[in-house]
Amino acid sequence: MSTGERRTMVQARDVVKFYGQFKALDRVSLTVYEGEKVVIIGPSGSGKSTLLRSINRLENIDGGSMVVNGMDLYDPKTDLTKVREEVGMVFQSFNLFPHRTVLENLTMAQTVVRRRPKKEATEKARYLLEKVGLSEKADAYPGKLSGGQQQRVAIARSLAMDPKLMLFDEPTSALDPEMIGEVLDVMKDLAHEGMTMVVVTHEMGFAREVADKVIFMDHGAVVEDGTPEHFFTNPTHERAKLFLSQIL
């Protein structure tokens, strides 16, 4: 596949991150093109969430560079909020705002950050809630929703900002098994619509079906980087083989 004419959404070079003495990221490089779906997998503690969180600078990196949507995150002139407006993020623990209704969760950033009129924001929110199948929950508080419903709202909340890139940090790990499907379906729809996505997950079926590229991380470093076919059928690295044998 030719990627020459496609825009680069994420360009991470030799990223290093320490937690005290512990090296969480060890010279990690990653390129994500517009429209591309990248799935990052690896054992816990491999640094995959840290890498994802450094893409919108929820984590500061200690070395290397990170350019997102053409903006260098560590250039003092870069307005970080401008970067984050364009980068949606979905968390393992949903992080919906419990003091606001579902609808208000979707309109808040639209009005506060994008400065959209309330009417426009509400219309957008209702459209997205319908899209994730939760129109009837618009006026409920998040606490009354199931985990799967909450996560779908969280995805809709991010989408309300019209992001160019979506980051998913283990979006189904906190869910009961019967709710995982509904969230993955929403993510698959999103993928088919052409959204650029970086997904940290343990859902191998999702990776196989949706990913353009699978990245396997271990001990803070990228060990494998290739197509799903290559990764799932013929991984080159021993640790990847071991991981696959344990998880499949």
Partner: peptide, 21 residues
């Protein structure tokens, strides 16, 4: 919880908007 601030920041809110809203 820290996730609340992270969610707000990742939506493009500034620190003071996050605090206030």
């Amino acid at each position: 919880p820290k996730g609340q601030a992270e969610a707000a920041l990742s939506l493009g809110m500034t620190r003071s908007q996050t605090m206030w809203h």
